[in-house]
Design a protein around this nucleic acid. Sequence first.
DNA 1: CTGAAAGCGCTTACAG
DNA 2: CTGAAAGCGCTTACAG
Lengths: 339, 339
Amino acid sequence: MPKSNKTPTINDVARLSGVSKKTVSRVINRSALLSEDTRTKVEAVIAQLGYVPNPQARALALRHNFLLGLLHDNPNAQTVLNFQEGVLDAIRETEFALVVRPVDRHSPTMLDDIRRFLEQQRLYGVLILPPISENDALAQLCLEMGCGYVRMGSAMLDDEDHIVASNDREMVSQAVDHLVELGHRKIALIEGPEGFRSAFERREGFMAAMQAHGLAVLPEWRVQGTYRFESGMAAATRLLEAADRPTAIFASNDEMAAGAFHAARLSDLKVPDDLSIIGFDDSPIAAHIWPPMTTVGWPVREMGRAAALKLIAPDDPAAQAFRFPAKLVKRLSVAPPRA
Amino acid sequence: MPKSNKTPTINDVARLSGVSKKTVSRVINRSALLSEDTRTKVEAVIAQLGYVPNPQARALALRHNFLLGLLHDNPNAQTVLNFQEGVLDAIRETEFALVVRPVDRHSPTMLDDIRRFLEQQRLYGVLILPPISENDALAQLCLEMGCGYVRMGSAMLDDEDHIVASNDREMVSQAVDHLVELGHRKIALIEGPEGFRSAFERREGFMAAMQAHGLAVLPEWRVQGTYRFESGMAAATRLLEAADRPTAIFASNDEMAAGAFHAARLSDLKVPDDLSIIGFDDSPIAAHIWPPMTTVGWPVREMGRAAALKLIAPDDPAAQAFRFPAKLVKRLSVAPPRA
DNA sequence: CTGAAAGCGCTTACAG
DNA sequence: CTGAAAGCGCTTACAG
């Protein structure tokens, strides 16, 4: 009998079921080489004892643990949490767990810090969120350290096994199409910050769409922001002071778009009657400001799930996906321009 | 020489420094019983080799691992992330890592699921966020399983070693005081949902403050919401239809307060001229809607840090704290009532 | 289909 | 202040 005051081990299970611990191990690991009888018998004892394999011991023997890491420096809390939910969807009912690690993109020791983290925790693999996911040196580091990784990005930054990507460029095109269909011709862009791939993709998508429609983008209709609320407000303020004022603004994320709403209000312009605004992300703020914002939503949770599956179950059909369609969420911040 | 293609182990360090592995272990664990010479010598070899102790092996031998768990079902993404940052502040430079585990409060198998999670991961301890932190059965479960825990709450739900608490009741009083000082007499309450301790505390604080000021709270000035945006909108709509319309609203969280902003707009009432609104949480939305919202902010990150320290370094002075002052953040959603 | 032996990389008494 | 032996709870070749 196992000592009743301790959690049972593989030895207890082996003794009680009258087999070797190796056989118990085979049951745990679902080995094919096992008679149905033995399996049933051992499983009964496992259930009776409430036995749970010790993951530390398994990790030691297997030379890898069951931890997935989430590396992020994402400013959008909801995106991070949605991604986490997706990862959890993938690892639920498995022995994997999710370890989170915020990183500071601006720290000069960032790469060393992450190296130490990976060495120390010996993760099974890491999931990397944008914008830090755009750092190729980081991906290289994972490779060197033998740590699996999957990046989330707004373009195909890596090969299919290592990325879950949205189609930002195409989606921004659709947003522009939507504005043009309603009659807008003077459409301004609030860009994201230098060095963000997503900012680049969204700008490219915007410019390409405008060109496809034969529409000019005056230099004064392009202002750069930082992806933060205040920068969107400042950028929109400048746009609204332009000699030839745009009738619509595409902001490269929702936070900046929300800032643009404020700027419009301060300039006594009504959204959408005097100014149409489209954002990007479909974060909670988009639905909760007034008027509710038309924006581009992307399936963050599904991307998190697929990213995790690429690491822990690469043969799962859901792990094959690497392109994830975003979609335009139409709300009330867009209307035809004033006649 | 260690095989250069493998990560070095304690044996490599022992061999190269000419001591036993036990001595290396003493260096790793900062044992006091060590000559300065030996320590220096071993540390040099460790640095030279880039040796990092294998946490799985340590975990197995020590019978506990170095993982902190974060259990939450918090609807406010920013709060969860801020708390995570605080925990990370505490475990930075340690060998601990943070494992996250969202839970579904409404699942009938929740407690069993968590039990399995704790059994499986054998966490060093868990941090529990509200509202699930208010579940005493969960705390009891941790106790039974020998898993350390610290709850975050809006009241002293547990003893000092097991909680980091805000002072919601007192803070709501201050919010009410602020409104009364400006001349408001007819102040309405949008309550949080039944069964949330925070909702209870905030309501109690509200009622006590009103009573202290000798102000009546008409039944029609109290409406319950769900902590979600839409419920705040619906609740405020009802409040604004009251025969005797309130001049100010205290909403038990920012999301519902934001909903109240919308309701006011739909009723053609200007905030703050026609209606003052105060929220609770100081979440990003509070600063990003128009007008910027006066609200109650609490030091979530500091609470996360203290909670983690209670688990991993109970003797640290910062681990002693259990009460965390919130503060009123004055912005532009409050003004004196119309004459 | 099943088992005895050795090993994963560390720590814990126990000596000295 | 330091070390040899045994053990933490698993798995991996290797036999049979």
